[in-house]
């Protein structure tokens, strides 16, 4: 029996690209698309909601990427998803990778598949390579699993994993907290290489995981250990 795949796209002020992102996902396969607008101040929600075959949900206020992703995963579970894929809404992820990302779950080999961005100079900006390595080390120290890309938002979860993973992280630390949940719940996981398209748009967003946001994420991760 064919597994139903739901693609969750958390978005914040992405009115210029969200339509293209959705069209790309629709062209990549027969997926149910759930767009979660995290309190955008522009027309992101209206744009996503007007598209055919898109379930558009909206946070009344901005709560962060993690919170929006979690809302999308809960919605996908309610819609009876067998596999849930999360991807960024700025167009940097290639929906063509969804098939490869979901394949290990279809085979029943694992519960979570982590998309791994290539860390090669030229393909990934140097500052991102350094931040990525620091993020991986911190994630390993705090949560006990070393992965190649702890900050990647392009992931696939089985229905079981999506039900059992429970984190209250609202911001960018969500991605790392999922690693903790994998460890705590002894979930089977694997890593699959993905393509990333770094555009001027995705690199220029004020809400992206830049240096300052990276420091804030780090502080929140450590703070989460203490309280």
């Amino acid at each position: 029996m064919e597994s139903s795949v739901h693609v969750v796209i958390p978005v914040y002020n992405e009115e210029t690209v969200i339509a293209d992102v959705v069209r790309e996902v629709q062209a990549a396969g027969d997926y149910t698309i759930i767009v979660v607008d995290d309190g955008s101040r522009d027309a992101t929600f209206t744009t996503a909601g007007s598209m055919t075959g898109v379930v558009a949900l909206r946070h009344r206020i901005n709560r962060g990427k993690g919170a929006a992703t979690k809302t999308g995963i809960v919605a996908a579970n309610r819609l009876g998803a067998d596999i849930i894929v999360t991807m960024d809404g700025d167009g940097q992820h290639d929906p063509g990778d969804i098939e490869a990302l979901t394949w290990p779950i279809r085979l029943g080999e694992c519960d979570v598949v982590l998309g791994t961005r290539p860390r090669v100079r030229g393909e990934m900006p140097l500052i991102k390579i350094i931040a990525n390595k620091i993020g991986n080390i911190v994630t390993w120290l705090l949560y006990g699993i070393h992965v190649s890309d702890s900050q990647s938002g392009f992931r696939a979860y089985s229905h079981f994993a999506a039900t059992i993973i429970d984190t209250k992280a609202d911001k960018y630390e969500y991605d790392s907290k999922v690693i903790r949940e994998i460890n705590n719940n002894r979930l089977r996981f694997t890593e699959v290489p993905i393509k990333v398209r770094y555009t001027d748009y995705s690199m220029g967003k004020p809400q992206k995981q830049g240096f300052i946001n990276g420091i804030k994420t780090l502080v929140r991760m450590i703070w989460g250990m203490l309280v």
Binding site: G49, T52, V54, L57, H59, I61, A67, V74, R78, K168
Partner: peptide, 20 residues
């Protein structure tokens, strides 16, 4: 606050499915 925001967003899920 996040939990309340989520509940409010998910309360529109049935109508979104209807629209779809």
């Amino acid at each position: 606050i996040s939990e309340l925001t989520r509940k409010e967003a998910l309360s529109h899920l049935p109508e979104q499915i209807q629209i779809t």
